[in-house]
Simulated assay, not measured.
Amino acid sequence: MFAPLNSEETAILARLPIVNRARGSRLYTDDGKRWIDCWADGGRALAGHKPDGVSLRLKNEIDRGLFAAYPNRWQNRLIKAMLKLFPGYGAARVFQSAGQALKSIPANRWPIDPLDVPPGTEFISGPVWGRPQLPNHPKGDYLLPILPLPGLSEVQSVLYAHDTGDLPASDMNSPLILAALTRACYSVSSCMDKRHVNGVISRKNEIRDGGNRINFWEMRGPYMVYKGDERNYEEIFESYFSQSVLIAPSVKRPSVLPLNPSMGELKKLFFCCNI
């Protein structure tokens, strides 16, 4: 499920200690601990909390001096990056919010999360969320990418299966935001590709440990979908939390495989005596 957090989920995430800095899939908190972040801001941190090249791209754009939402070169560059990330669509537009994006499509329902449909589903009628690097991603009439830049929920794009010639124009957005999103789209293609995910799974399978091998995660590319008894999820969340591992705050939401995990971190994720 991809949707705004409810009050209970927000309260759960607020239990984290103060985070001083973040890098990749790791959070460094005020009490000196290092957390593994498998929540990944709902999937927006799929390329990590500091995607490769984004800081430099932002610095370059700041030096250019244009912060305001005026016409700029990055609108078309972001559209090109998104169409490469999700091939097979005819056109794309960029809007200032999810609300504006949803108004641009003739559908009266919230987009479907492709992780909520069975693997192998090829097409979803109406709007669908776009999850980068999801294998065999189902196509929809309209795809709204979950753009891989953590902390940014204001900008939302729409990919249209067909360019009918009468699509609405994109909103104007700040070049700072568009430049960062463009670089993050290319970053997620390289750091969370199939080879990386398969490499992590292969290393996990090599672990020989005296603990219990966890079998309630279904791996769908970099996404970890909980397939155990829903009644146990709260206890599972607390067990991970006690070991400085942050997973999705509710059973309906996916977690994310961390970037470049160590063998010790893999043991925490997939071998645990406390569950």
Results as ranks from 00 to 15, higher is better:
Lys84Glu: 06
Leu178Tyr: 15
Asn232Ile: 07
Ala47Leu: 10
His137Phe: 02
Val245Tyr: 14
Glu218Trp: 07
Met82Leu: 11
Ser202Thr: 14
Ile247Leu: 10
His196Thr: 14
Thr29Asn: 10
Pro114Tyr: 05
Gly140Tyr: 11
Met82Phe: 00
Asn215Tyr: 03
Ser125Val: 06
Gln100Val: 08
Val128Gln: 04
Ala180Val: 07
Trp129Ser: 00
Gln100Phe: 02
Leu176Cys: 00
Arg57Tyr: 03
Ser7Phe: 12
Phe95Glu: 02
Glu61Asn: 01
Asp166Lys: 12
Gln133Leu: 09
Ser153Pro: 03
Leu178Gln: 15
Glu218Asp: 10
Glu218Thr: 06
Gly221Asp: 06
Pro106Trp: 12
Arg183Gly: 01
Thr121Asn: 05
Gly53Asn: 14
Arg231Met: 07
Leu159Asp: 10
Val200Ile: 15
Asp209Trp: 08
Leu78Asp: 02
Lys80Thr: 10
Tyr70Ser: 00
Pro261Glu: 02
Asn274Asp: 15
Lys227Asp: 00
Asp30Val: 12
Cys38His: 09
Gln156Lys: 10
Ser187Asp: 09
Gly42Leu: 06
Leu269Cys: 13
Leu269Ser: 14
Arg213Thr: 11
Phe123His: 14
Leu167Val: 11
Arg93Gly: 12
Gly210Ser: 04
Asn260Ser: 10
Asn173Thr: 03
Ala91Cys: 04
Cys272Ser: 15
Pro111Ile: 06
Pro261Asp: 04
Gly65Gln: 06
Gly211Phe: 12
Thr121Met: 12
His137Trp: 03
Ala92Lys: 01
Leu5Asp: 13
Phe86Gln: 01
Asn215Asp: 11
Lys139Cys: 08
Asp52Tyr: 15
Gln75Phe: 02
Ser97Arg: 03
Glu234Thr: 09
Arg73Phe: 00
Leu178Trp: 15
Asn136Trp: 08
Phe237Asn: 10
Asp229Leu: 03
Leu159Gly: 06
Glu61Arg: 09
Asn232Gln: 09
Cys191Gly: 07
Phe270Val: 11
Pro254Met: 02
Asn6Gln: 04
Arg26Ile: 13
Leu159Val: 13
Glu238Asp: 13
Glu9Leu: 15
Pro114Lys: 03
Asp30Arg: 14
Asn20Cys: 03
Val155Met: 05
Gly88Tyr: 09
Ser104Arg: 12
Ala101Lys: 03
Ile62Tyr: 13
Arg220Thr: 02
Val155Arg: 01
Gln100Pro: 01
Val197Leu: 07
Arg131Gly: 01
Ala92His: 09
Leu85Lys: 08
Pro148His: 03
Cys272Val: 13
Leu259His: 05
Pro118Gly: 04
